[in-house]
Amino acid sequence: MNGHPVVGAIVNLNHPDYYIHWGFILISMANFLVIVILIVLFALAISIPFLKGKPVKRRKYQSIASAGSDDESEGWTAHGRRLGLKYLPPDKLLPDGQPSYVASWVYVFGVLTIGALIMAILSGMVLAIEGPTWWHLSDIGHFVNSLHLWSVELFMGFMTVHLWAKFWMAAWRGKRWLTWMTGMLAFLVSIVEAFTGYLSQTNFDSQWIAFESKDAFNSGGIGAFFNAMNFGQALMLHIVLVPIILVLIVGIHVLMVRIRGVVPPIGAEPAHLGEDSGDAVIASGAQETGIQETSTLEVGQ
């Protein structure tokens, strides 16, 4: 598998890296290429036309929340059920259509981020079961290790482009500030997850990172709770605690998107999914921006 130098560089992660040195800037070739790719992806996402979808007629849903208003049952389960039906009826929780303005590649990167996260979790589970000796010495271990690395690279890359897009779209509009904050929190937790992953490599790279970071942690008082040189602690944080927190935050983020809907282009005001007014886009400049006013678009057909 590693006979070809290019394939070996992609699969075997234990080879030396190449660095670019411009004045005071010192960056590895891999990180430089990742940054260039992210910029290119962002530019393509806002410039390439999206796939054409088929307009579908708006279906009328009966409000389950109002239909169940006669339920006067007490207890936290009944209260939770009523809140769930109020804010997340089935047509909003699992919609089969989206507003027409979602027909843009910019809206795709959130789903790509979740897909890459799922792949990172699955490959990481295999690595955790087999152990460091397997992923360092076995050809299949090299492949799964590289699969985990590149899924993480895609996860962080897609999430970065997603954050860029939502920042310039002012995604906190329309009472979506909690959606925005959970997305930012997921990004910060992902940095912690990536750092503990570096410490869990069990190679010279991870040893160097551990020795260099321990002084920074000790000076900030974090060393009293987290020892970067403790492989067992770093590994448990990487495969147990931090992933649980990250998945929980991502789940809350997705639910908030379902509750408030995806953010519309600036200048447009959409109705919420599942309401009788439909997913119409009300905007004075709708014709100039190419937004359909009275139909929803079923993306992916």
Rank of each mutant, 00 (worst) to 15 (best):
M1A: 14
G3W: 03
P5K: 08
V6F: 07
V6P: 00
I10L: 15
W22A: 15
V40R: 03
V40Y: 08
A45Y: 04
V56W: 09
K60A: 15
Q62W: 07
A67K: 12
D70V: 09
W76D: 05
L85A: 14
L88S: 02
P90A: 00
D91E: 15
Q98G: 00
Y101V: 02
V106I: 14
Y107I: 01
G110N: 05
T113Q: 02
L117E: 00
M119D: 03
I129V: 14
W135L: 06
G141V: 01
H148Y: 13
L149M: 12
V152R: 08
V152D: 02
E153C: 06
E153T: 12
E153R: 05
L154E: 00
M156L: 15
L163G: 12
W164L: 15
K175S: 13
T182W: 03
L188T: 07
V192F: 13
V192G: 15
Y198T: 07
Q201M: 10
F204N: 10
S206H: 01
S206Q: 01
E212P: 00
E212T: 11
F217G: 01
N227H: 10
L235E: 06
L248V: 12
V250M: 14
V262D: 05
V263R: 04
E269Q: 11
H272T: 06
L273C: 10
L273Q: 14
D276E: 12
D279L: 11
G285R: 09
Q287L: 10
G290R: 07
V299Q: 07
Q301T: 13
